[in-house]
Design a binder for these strands. Sequence first.
DNA 1: CCTACCGATCGGTAGG
DNA 2: CCTACCGATCGGTAGG
Lengths: 202, 202
Amino acid sequence: MTDTAKPRREQIHDVASRLFSERGYHATSMRDLAGELGMQGGSLYAHISGKEELLIEIVRGASQQFDDALFSLRDLDLPAEQKLREAMFRHIRVVADNMDSATVFFHEWKHLSAEPYARVVAWRDTIDTFYRELVAQGVQDGSFRSDLDIRATATLILSSVNWTYTWYRPGGSLSPRDVAEQFADMLLRGLRADGPEAGEAP
Amino acid sequence: MTDTAKPRREQIHDVASRLFSERGYHATSMRDLAGELGMQGGSLYAHISGKEELLIEIVRGASQQFDDALFSLRDLDLPAEQKLREAMFRHIRVVADNMDSATVFFHEWKHLSAEPYARVVAWRDTIDTFYRELVAQGVQDGSFRSDLDIRATATLILSSVNWTYTWYRPGGSLSPRDVAEQFADMLLRGLRADGPEAGEAP
DNA sequence: CCTACCGATCGGTAGG
DNA sequence: CCTACCGATCGGTAGG
């Protein structure tokens, strides 16, 4: 109606994200994609160089969003607990605000060819490290339990935030902040009732 | 060498699980599958009726394993905390002992046709319910915090056990029991140091 | 379990 | 951005 239309390339990426997330990369044909954009299959190649380029850019875009959200936290001088809450919130928000590309990111990166594949593997490592450092900081300053296994703790945190792509529904009653606060509360305080000290061994 | 060979059908399912988990369902051709079994593409159809039958059986087999592991716990008279520990252990063990079919289960079920697809959706609901009931029991008997959100708690637990399919390595140093105990300890006790009561709000 | 084949569809290109 | 097309490959079948 007006000239608020997105650039064609961006439209293609958006639709590709949706189709790849719904049907998977290999089950989505270039003709499916073109059809949703109201063009013929061959016409796509006036805008992009090939199918894998789309996957590469979707995956790169998703990892970039995580980087932007998390790495600015790295050198922030916050107590470990606050930093963890904020990291979980931002992490979940990236997933929630980009359900399609996040789903593609988690599900379809295995179909990348060698070089972009290796980049994803390396990227995963940087995120692991980010959360491990965050946990280590909390252990060192005494706010987290000293008997925590750093790797396992980081993995547990990552499980909680990453798995959201499987169940979160953007239009629902839970905001990313709600989810993050619920999860962080449970992780930090534990599920056990306090007070009379629930029995350890029966 | 001896006659310990598995039935051909079982071999086909095992190889299909591996290929589907490594490459995805649609990126695995029947000729790929036949080749790994030392036969021609068309020969597969002497043993199976079609490609989707393989996916259906892999998915059905995986959900059956979870059912067998978890539902026997349902009416067991255990304290909630012990039941949670045992459920998490069994859940993680199913994933760890069946990395291929578990990966197919979590990644490829979307490619099922309407009827088996609906069965998976319904199944997921029974597992959700299982964990919610477990949490609710713990809240009722006073061993879990009374302010827990049942749904969120069950989701957090499920995140931790399901996500293992993405990082667990069966030959490594961590047994399913190790992982389950680490995760359950953290979830139950929380990450915070006890004692001087780490500050809630700064 | 093989050979030989089917129609359908794939990603991508040429030329306009 | 379209038409028309390319070789390759797909899942599956017939007949043995």
